[in-house]
Design a binder for these strands. Structure first.
Lengths: 206, 206
DNA sequence: GGTGAAACGGAGGGTTGATTCCGCTTTGGC
DNA sequence: GCCAAAGCGGAATCAACCCTCCGTTTCACC
């Protein structure tokens, strides 16, 4: 049990971390997180000995939301609808949070046991979902569970600093890819040109 | 005109840079490029005052290939075929070279004038190509030139350290996306699962 | 083969960020 | 209120990388 002041600081650190991770990605200097939280670096290190500890803690909610949406998709009586919801949800989460995008798109070393099992659960679920959708002829023949992973990965390529533009690009991309794997066309959202794919390019890191 | 030894060193630096950029991305320490080239850092700096100078020089050939393929696509009597060739070529180049991937997927500050005009030429060409393909009803209605850019961007998300796996993932993704924008299905290459999308994930940087 | 300009390379100073150490402060049970 | 434990913060240390300076070497022209 943490002392009250320590608990308070922990919350402030996590709040700051979530904000900075989302905006600037998971490589932000730890010192700036500490500063934003109004604590010293040592306090941050005391509570989260490694960067990964902090990242894991900062994204627990996002992870839970992912597991939830996977579960709900599995329970969906229409597997194709389940796939659409799953992909759209996860990709939107990526688009509005640079940090979470990196977490999803890269195997961070040192996942916790929980994260490991969530990941395996997701993989297995994807296969089951895809299989169910095939059974109803809602997927193009030859599509596999890893194609869904591939979508998430591809989506990570279109996210930039600006969540607005990222979201527009992501929506468009997801529509394309659902069209590609599905047995029928998916309606297209606005082309990204209007909000400026150029600016999106200009936005990206480095 | 450079002295013979200087010219020799310049070539060695560029060779080393191309190799390390491709394998490790454009953020490799300049010292390791110098070391690999067998020269001192000062020599590298003397020839290429900024990292961007080195990057530009290292990728001139790739840039030229891109401009060429754009030009050839424009000249193609079948605009849809032109689009397919263009997208496949560029995406493959991205997949096998982490450095070039980053160059294409991010607006590096300080492009040379040549690069600027190449970029503008490419943008304009995309619009013309798309228009021509629409005229022949080979594209799904609503597709714009920026959708092609979006493909390249999305493709950047699936490239990892391992060129083999990246290429497999990229091919699959490109097939999906050409299917999505085209008026008819495109044949799918092998699913990536077989070569291991998991490993691809594990591969990615940090 | 002498010479001066060009080129060389490695040491060194600066910056940024990670991580630890330690003397001071706060908390909470008594 | 007292005090031991828990917590705190910032200075200090450390490592990686960038970039420049300068004494030495090499080239190419005579």
């Amino acid at each position: 049990m943490l002392r009250a002041d320590a608990e308070r600081n922990k919350v402030r650190i996590l709040t700051a971390a979530r904000e900075l991770f989302a905006r600037d990605g998971i490589d932000v200097p730890l010192a700036s997180i500490a500063q934003q939280a109004g604590v010293g670096v040592a306090t941050l290190y005391r509570r989260f000995p490694t960067r990964n500890d902090l990242i894991s803690a900062a994204f627990v909610e996002e992870s839970r939301r992912c597991v939830d949406v996977v579960q709900r998709s599995l329970d969906d009586s229409d597997p194709w609808h389940g796939i659409c919801v799953l992909v759209s949800t996860v990709c939107s989460m990526q688009a509005v949070d640079q940090g979470f995008n990196r977490v999803l798109a890269s195997h961070l070393p040192g996942l916790t046991d929980d994260e490991q099992s969530d990941y395996l659960f997701a993989l297995e679920s994807l296969d089951r979902l895809v299989e169910a959708a095939h059974a109803e002829r809602r997927l193009r023949p030859g599509i596999t569970g890893t194609d869904i992973l591939l979508i998430v990965l591809a989506n990570s390529g279109v996210v930039s600093r600006d969540p607005r533009r990222s979201l527009a690009a992501s929506r468009r991309l997801v529509a394309h890819l659902l069209t590609a794997i599905g047995a029928a066309d998916v309606a297209l959202p606005h082309p990204v040109g209007e909000t400026g794919l150029d600016e999106l390019l200009r936005d990206r890191l480095g």
